[in-house]
């Protein structure tokens, strides 16, 4: 198990290799996205002349969009192509000779990224609430920790979805567009673009049978303290079922696809 520690340390070094880029991108993405979303919702609240829409006030909406960009990063861990690129250029060879499980190694590097972004979420969320009238309370801390925990479980599920798609590159040469499509679906139907409360009822009911709301909406609602305990329990069971399903899919794709890998790259 000692190799886990080295892999995590190595990944963290890689994440922080270009610090200026990293922090500019991180702060820029988060702050600007929040400001743009707030401006949009401010105009909608003003046009309707109301203070509450679908259970959300404007400050709640702001909080929602503070969590969204970092939450998306937790969920999607490593960049698109974290596996497909290596299969494509042949550098995947090294995983075949490493004395460790390929699956464990890749899952761990992915989750290291997620964990790092989870720390960012904690930092941003606490900073934001520090300047709010209620400040940082025990309830807020508990909600934040529960939300981050669910985000990490969700990120494992998305890691398995990503692996299932990325392993298709053993059959098709270039699949990054499939990964981008998957992200569009998860972000839109998960609630990154807007809270699912705004979707028509029939759409919300239909989405319960997909993994999307549990990947984005549930962890955000938990962090904000909006999710009931029943909702969290149902969500966690759903995430467990989806994780098993996608884990089996990825495993079966790997066991079939590894014989197609020619090792020379393209």
């Amino acid at each position: 198990m000692n190799w886990w520690r080295h892999v995590v340390a190595n990944e963290l070094r890689k994440i922080l290799a270009f610090r200026s880029d990293f922090w500019v991108t991180f702060l820029g993405q988060t702050i600007i996205q929040v400001l743009i979303a707030r401006a949009l919702w401010q105009s909608i609240f003003d046009a309707n002349g109301t203070k509450v829409m679908e259970g959300f006030t404007l400050p709640m909406m702001t909080l929602y969009y503070i969590i969204v960009p970092v939450g998306n990063k937790i969920l999607t861990g490593e960049n698109v192509g974290f596996l497909a690129r290596e299969i494509y250029d042949g550098s995947f060879n090294r995983y075949l000779i490493y004395p460790i499980s390929f699956f464990q190694y890749k899952t761990l590097t992915y989750l290291t990224h997620s964990f790092f972004f989870a720390l960012q979420l904690v930092l941003i969320y606490l900073l934001f609430n520090l300047f709010q009238p209620d400040g940082v309370t025990l309830t807020l801390l508990l909600n934040l920790l529960s939300g981050v925990a669910i985000f990490l479980v969700a990120s494992y599920v998305f890691c398995m979805i990503a692996m299932s798609i990325e392993l298709l590159s053993l059959w098709a040469d270039n699949i990054w567009s499939l990964m981008v499509m998957a992200r569009f679906f998860v972000y839109f139907f998960g609630g990154s673009y807007m809270p699912l409360n705004f979707f028509p009822d029939w759409a919300v009911s239909a989405l319960q049978y997909t993994p999307f709301p549990y990947l984005v909406s549930l962890p955000i609602r938990t962090t904000m303290g909006l999710a009931s305990s029943t909702e969290i329990q149902v969500g966690l069971v759903s995430l467990l079922v989806w994780s098993i399903l996608f884990h089996l899919t990825a495993r079966s794709l790997w066991s079939k696809g590894e014989y197609r890998y020619n090792g020379v790259g393209i």
Binding site: D173, L178, M181
Partner: peptide
């Protein structure tokens, strides 16, 4: 890939 990108 050409087809996938159009779909995307």
């Amino acid at each position: 890939d050409f087809f996938f990108r159009i779909m995307m």
